[in-house]
């Protein structure tokens, strides 16, 4: 077995108040040394078979890990970067054997597609875009949306992937007159794309026509809200936001996520649910991920909290393991696992 492999770790200690529903199944020990920044679970074709894999990103190295039978991980490829560090992994749904990464310092300067085939014939990076990139998201149907430029010349572009990872086509969307912070697909409306802006507006595009359909202001109680999930139901648009700037002294507790309903016809919105920490728990949202009805967040306290968005309850609180605060968390795109990373490079895989 290669040296760069993982071990099966003991279950981390959970206090009696927060056993939650998280069960540790595997630990991936990343020996790469540099600062870990992100993790993602993807499908990769290895020896002709689609295999669940984990992608880890450190500042200058992105690694591909293949699952072995015993919940251990074998590193099968690394992509190295020398000039610009990696900021985030950008998984693209409906695409296997390809992952995108955003590189930059404080802001994204480049987006690259990373490819590798187990025959070793196709290991490469493809530069997809460069410049002053503000936001990027992988979309269903092999697409990637990004916004770039300054306010005066902001460009919102959807790229479709060819099989070799290159660009098959590019389409421009009408830019709003304010900087876009995040994108989200709208479940239930395949051709709709949602964006949140720096002015606390939500914008909706028609991905077929490129039209900017509407701009809707949301409550100013929380600035710079980030959209993690959006779905259309019964004529309303439901949006799950996180509030990195929320104060911990809110009377209702500490809202980490919020579900709001918006009527796109009138632009009127109403709060549906606040997802707060249990009483006695402190912490603000640092970063997080939402998949289906589950939301996970790394908190300023160093813990990870998981909410069931339908029940509205915090379902699990995961304390730091070995006194190492959590630094990032992602739901697996290949199964119902939670991937949690620490600053020392360890990635823990939990079954929920």
């Amino acid at each position: 077995r290669p040296l760069e492999q993982t071990e099966i770790a003991d279950l981390p200690a959970c206090d009696s108040l927060s056993p939650g529903n998280l069960q540790l199944v595997s630990k991936l020990k990343n020996p790469s040394g540099s600062c870990p920044v992100d993790v993602s679970a993807v499908w990769w074709e290895i020896a002709g078979l689609k295999t669940p894999c984990i992608i880890t990103a450190c500042e200058y190295v992105v690694s591909l890990w293949k699952a072995l039978d015993t919940w251990q991980w074998e590193k099968i490829n690394s992509w190295h970067f020398t000039e610009v560090p990696v900021l985030q992994i950008v998984p693209v749904p409906d695409v296997s054997s390809l992952v995108c990464v955003a590189l930059g310092n404080l802001e994204i300067r480049e987006i690259r597609a990373l490819l590798y085939s187990s025959d070793g014939a196709h290991e490469k990076q493809v530069l997809l875009g460069s410049g002053n990139i503000k936001a990027v998201l992988g979309l269903t149907k092999r697409r990637l949306v990004s916004s770039s430029g300054t306010l005066c010349d902001q460009q919102v572009e959807v790229m479709t992937f060819a099989e070799d990872g290159g660009s098959k086509g590019r389409q421009l969307l009408m830019p709003p007159e304010e900087t876009i912070l995040t994108f989200a697909e709208v479940q239930g409306l395949q051709e709709a794309l949602l964006g949140t802006t720096i002015m606390n507006n939500i914008v909706i595009w028609n991905l077929n026509s490129g039209q900017l359909l509407t701009k809707m202001h949301i409550d100013d109680s929380y600035q710079a809200s980030v959209c993690h999930k959006a779905y259309s139901d019964m004529g309303l648009l439901f949006v799950v936001l996180s509030h990195p700037c929320a104060k911990e002294s809110e009377p209702l507790g500490s809202p980490v996520f919020q579900l709001i309903a918006i009527n796109p016809m009138t632009s009127l919105s109403a709060g549906v649910m606040l997802y707060c920490l249990p009483q006695g728990q402190a912490g603000r949202f640092l970063e997080g991920d939402v998949k289906e009805n589950l939301a996970a967040a790394v908190l300023t306290s160093g813990k990870i909290a998981v909410w069931d968005l339908l029940l509205g309850h915090c379902m699990a609180l995961l304390p730091p393991v070995s006194d190492q605060s959590w630094s990032f968390v992602k739901w697996s795109g290949t199964d119902s696992h939670l991937l949690a990373g620490q600053k020392d490079g360890n990635i823990f895989v939990y079954r929920y």
Binding site: E191, L213, S232, N263, M265, S269
Partner: peptide, 23 residues
């Protein structure tokens, strides 16, 4: 939330907004 607070709702809001928006 109270639907009355959000004004008249259309199940086809995406289609309607697409037909009204600038091409």
């Amino acid at each position: 939330c109270n639907e009355a607070d959000l004004g008249p709702i259309s199940l086809n809001w995406f289609k309607e907004l697409s037909s009204e928006a600038q091409p």
